[in-house]
């Protein structure tokens, strides 16, 4: 018999297909432009309502300015909650002077208040985003990426396994070896939720804000409860995508920044495998 000495060795595995990598980065750039130009558009009327139309006296979310001690005060009201958001929402500084605007200049595209140009950016990249997303979704469904990599397997869905993963996740213990070759069930849930729920919701609620598309597809209005509800859902969903982005960034850094970034650029991802090396020949 040969004796074996076990030690850990790093191996590069193919993590992401070329199409996943390409669509990932086109998606990332599109979402950044859409977010910043979207906040520009929001600023033209920084209030949100429910229903078909705007009841100007009862927005559920509003940013505005009031005269305060020593200048203007920015106020954000969400339902019954009233917050002082001076410097960020309602009132912020632009070239050293206080200006009344929803989101500050550094978060809008273009930075100055210019709705017409913000719309140009938004609608151009909306097409880039939607076509890119359609290519990704079609290839994920038809090419097996969805079934192979994203849908949880039966063993991953066992309550005991899910609880274990949550416990590991809370202690920031990342899977190693064979387990690291696939997404864990929390990752799968997050990616499925973003790619197949939140992002399509952005497209549909965006379409519902178009009077022309509302005429062609009146069911959109029924689906979201009216144009102003669609505008609100568009904003809330965008906020959830921003939240996902921050969690995504934290997890990328904590679970190996370079390894993750490389895998999304070159496709190769390093995992640690227990290698068996023969210590000597059997006699």
């Amino acid at each position: 018999m040969s004796s074996t000495a076990r030690h850990v060795r790093r191996a590069l595995v193919e993590r992401h297909s070329g199409l996943v990598r390409l669509t990932h980065w086109i998606n990332a750039v599109s979402l950044l432009v859409l977010l910043l130009s979207g906040l520009q558009i929001f600023n033209a009327h920084p209030k949100l309502y429910w229903g078909a139309q705007s009841h100007f006296d009862r927005p559920w979310l509003a940013t505005f300015a009031v005269a305060g001690q020593g200048g203007l005060q920015g106020v954000t009201r969400i339902g019954p909650v009233r917050l002082d958001t001076t410097g960020f929402l309602g009132v912020s500084r632009q070239h050293g002077v206080q200006v009344v605007r929803g989101f500050p200049a550094w978060l809008t595209l273009p930075p100055q208040q210019f709705l017409a140009v913000g719309r140009r950016w938004h609608f151009f990249f909306a097409w880039v985003f939607a076509i890119n997303g359609a290519v990704y979704a079609a290839s994920a469904v038809l090419g097996g990426h969805l079934r192979r990599d994203l849908l949880p397997t039966r063993d991953q869905l066992r309550p005991r396994h899910v609880l274990l993963e949550i416990w590991d996740h809370m202690r920031l213990r990342f899977p190693k070896g064979e387990e690291a070759k696939r997404y864990n069930v929390l990752q799968k849930g997050a990616y499925l939720g973003v790619a197949f729920v939140l992002l399509p919701l952005m497209v549909l609620t965006g379409m519902t804000m178009s009077p022309g598309l509302d005429a062609a597809f009146p069911w959109l209005l029924d689906l979201f409860g009216g144009r102003q509800s669609a505008r609100s859902i568009h904003f809330v969903t965008a906020s959830l995508i921003v939240l996902f982005f921050f969690v995504h960034m934290v997890m990328v850094v904590l679970s190996g920044l370079w390894n993750n970034v490389r895998s999304m650029i070159t496709g190769r991802y390093a995992i640690e495998v227990a290698a068996s090396e023969p210590a000597g020949e059997a006699s």
Binding site: I41, F42, A44, H45, K47, Y49, A52, Q53, S54, F56, L115, R119, M209, P211, R227, Q228, R231
Partner: peptide, 12 residues
């Protein structure tokens, strides 16, 4: 009908 302003609000 619903009137939609480019600013984002609507009135019927």
């Amino acid at each position: 009908t619903r009137h939609d302003c480019v600013e984002g609000w609507s009135c019927i």
